[in-house]
Each structure stands twice: as structure tokens, then as C-alpha cells.
Nucleic acid binder design. Sequence first.
RNA 1: GCCCCCAUCGUCUAGCGGCCUAGGACGCUGCCCUCUCACGGCAGAAACACCGGUUCGAGUCCGGUUGGGGGCGCCA
Length: 466
Amino acid sequence: MSVVTRFAPSPTGYLHIGGARTALFNWLFAKHHGGQFLLRIEDTDRARSNDDAVRAIYEGLKWLGLDWDGDAVSQYARADRHREVVEQLLAAGDAYRCYCTPAELQEMRDKARAEGRRIGYDGRWRDRDPSDAPAGVDPAIRLKAPKDGDTVVEDKVQGTVTAPNSELDDMILLRADGSPTYMLAVVVDDHDLGITHVIRGDDHLTNTFRQTQIYNAMGWDKPSFAHIPLIHGPDGAKLSKRHGALGVEAYRDMGLLPEALRNYLLRLGWGHGDEEIIPTERAIELFDLDGVGRSPARFDMVKLNNLNGHYIREADDSDLVDATRPLLENAIERVLTEPEAAGLVAIMPMVKQRAKTLLEIVDLVAFLTVSRPINLDEKAAAQLDDDGRATLRHVRTALDDLGSWSGGDIEAVVRTAAEALDVKLGKVAQPLRAALTGTTVSPPIFDVMAILGRDETLARLDDVLV
RNA sequence: GCCCCCAUCGUCUAGCGGCCUAGGACGCUGCCCUCUCACGGCAGAAACACCGGUUCGAGUCCGGUUGGGGGCGCCA
């Protein structure tokens, strides 16, 4: 049997990080088994759905590199089919009309809570004569769920999970306005789409009992279920906006690489021995449900950044230039000039090993785009005291006689100057760095000088020597 | 409140009864490399929540306690 998985987000916001991981697991599982990965938008609640949110999901998945098979399915568009299934259930006596008012239901909940029982519907219309129906009230349709025995879910991650049917009430299938509920729609769609494996967050584990009852009532085969633990914030509570649970586009804007995010998300709740660095190809080869852990994992930005640094170091220079350029241009609010763009390309091999994010690369190459006289930060200014400037004067003079302007030649001149002054190279390099970049941290200074070019370098030195 | 799930270093995890004086990674500390910052290398501190069983033997199996999480909508 060929594997078919699906990712089924509700379009109520962006593609958040937890959803991204769920999508990744489904995608990897499908790829690993040579199956299909489908996308279904759970938009049965029209009031909460909007096109922007749907677009954000598409773009988030695309950026993450999780391509789905075929067109995305709109759950809302399948409402007729959902109603058809309810008609079958009604005809078979497995569903019934309920005329309770919202106030009545609320009262029921309050009473159950007060008596320490599970909160739920008491089944008062379950066996009531239809002729009792109040006039002018549209009924909701509920499943006539079994009252005795247990409902059992065989979960690929959580194992066998059992709940007594006495704890499960008769869920609503069709609202009074005739629209299908999520619980019904998921089951019908998963069945109709031929989904073989439902991999989702374990906040759906208890829902699975109720969905199982629908499968049973319809006599349908159930898919395999795998409920993966939720991602938690640093404080151990379910990840929320309060923790900075951002959309994936926010991680893109922070300068994270999709490959790094995939690797990080994969390792959050899944492991394969001691392997930490698992590029996507390797992940497809290894991924299976038995490696998924049962306990929730906390989201750790520091570790994500570390992994991102690894993938930045591994990346092609030209790819990094392409990825960095828009962020850099956004930061300086203008397009790069030709020399600046060339400088970015030239400096990339030196900066990529010093950055954990693309944004850090932007910081490291800022010296390329500033205009004279450049601003000096506090530490840089401190380097340019009388001593520092005396040293620079000496170097500046030596540089005057330098014919070529290659990194190697520059280095030779500066080293000679340091020897002549009888100081360590650092004593010369730091004032140079301060004068040329305005900071005390930068790529190797001889590379900076070579890329800045003779004229710009000497001009920046003169700026601080007047 | 009721139901369900979970529990190894600060964090992510390896461990599927003896190979564990509990391994790896991130982070942290020290040293080396070094023009700064990184990278890289070396060394180090750091965990089986607790209590009972089962067993010749338990981090690994069972029960309970505690702690954490999730669910309980005419939301998804």
C-alpha cells in the first residue's frame, strides 16, 4: 500500500513553527516511503478563515522547501460531501437531531463542572420522539455514539490509548446552519483522500477517540495515527505568541536558512542515535515514526542558531550572497552599488565562518556600505587614542610606497611596520580595524583593506589622522 | 473538576534488563590556535524526579506519588 500523508492547517494566521514541524514530519514520512504528501486547508469556519492566511501557509511551506502533491484541497468546498455522509448516518440511525439551545448547553456544562463530571452533552435528544421538536428551531445533528465499552486508538507514537465511551459525549456533526464541523470533515476528507497516515500534534489525541467513532459508524477503515508531542516554549508551556512563536517567514527574516530550520525541527522530538547534523537527503533516508519521542520538547533558539551557523559555513558563497543581498539592501534602504556588490562577493568566504545568521553577515559587511567619514563606535574610538594614531601614521606612510594592492602585499607591509615599531601585529591591526570599519570586530583586516581598495583605505585612514 | 499523555545533564537527546564508573550535541568554564571576532582542536563541570515492587541484576519492566503538558465548543 502506498503511503499518503497530509498537512491540514487551519488558515487562522501564519504557518507557525509547530505547524511547520508537523508538515515536515508528514513530508519526510511520505518521501521516505515514496508516497504522497497532500495539503488540505481546514477552512470550515468561514468567519476565521481568510485568503491572506492561506497564502502565508503556501509561502511558508514553499520557503521551507516542503512541496505538496497536487492542488491544495479546501475543506469548505467539500461541505456537500460532508452533509451527504451525515444523511447516511441519519438514515442508518447512527445520528440524530438535537434541538438544544446554546443557553441549555451552557447550563449543562455548568452543572457537569459543579458535579465534578466531564463536561459534555447529556444526550437528552438522543432517544426523544422527533414530534417533540420545538417549532422554528433548526436542529444540530449529533452522532449517536456508543455508550458502553471503550474506544481504542492504536497510535504509532503513543501506543495503545483507551478511553471509556462513558467519557465521550455525542458530538455535533452538522451545525444548526447546516455546516459541517471539523470533527466530521476531517474524517470524511481523510477517508476520501485515501490518507494512510495521519501525523499531527498530540493536542489531537483525545479528538481521535471521537473521530474513531465516526469511522466505526461509517464502517470505514481507519488510517494509522501518529500523534507527535507539541513544541513547548522555554518555560515548558505550550508554545504561544508570548514565547515568540512566530511564523516561518519571521525566521527567514532573521536570516535563518531553510535547511537549518528543517534540521533543527527534525531533531526536536526525533532522533537517530548520536546524529545531529542531518541534511534533508539524509533525513528522508532515515525518517520513520519509531524515532519520534513521546515527550514534548522545548524550543531553543540558541541551538537553532548554532545549526544555522553550520549550514552557513557549508553553503555556497554565491548562494549566500544571493540570500544576504536583499537583507543588506533592506538594512541600508538602498540598492548596492557595483563596487559594493563586488565587495560582498569577495568578502563572503571570510564572513561566512563568523556568522550564525544572515543578519550577522549583514553586520559584518556593513563596513562596505558606510560613507566617509565613517562613524566610530565607542570601542573603536578608544583604539584611536594618541598611541593608536601614531601607529597608524607610521603604517599610512609605509602604505604610500606600496605599489600593488593585494592582501598579501598589504600584510607584508603592515607586518614590517609592526616590527619596525617593535609591537605585536595586534597593536597595529586593531587601530587599523577601528579606522577602516568603525568597530573592533571585523573580518581579517588585510582582506578588508584589499576589498576596500587603495583609495578608500587611505582616505579612511586620513579621516582619523587629521 | 473529569479524561488522556509525558518524565535521563540548563536545553535537544542516546539508552529498547547486565556492554552505563549513563554516551553525543547546544550552551557554559579553562587551555591551544590567532590581527579582532569567529571557526577549529583539547580538557572540564553538569542528569536517570521520588517511593515501592518484579528480577541474580533496573535508567531500562510494573504500581503509586509528585511534577509538567494536552483535551473537555453548534473552534480547528
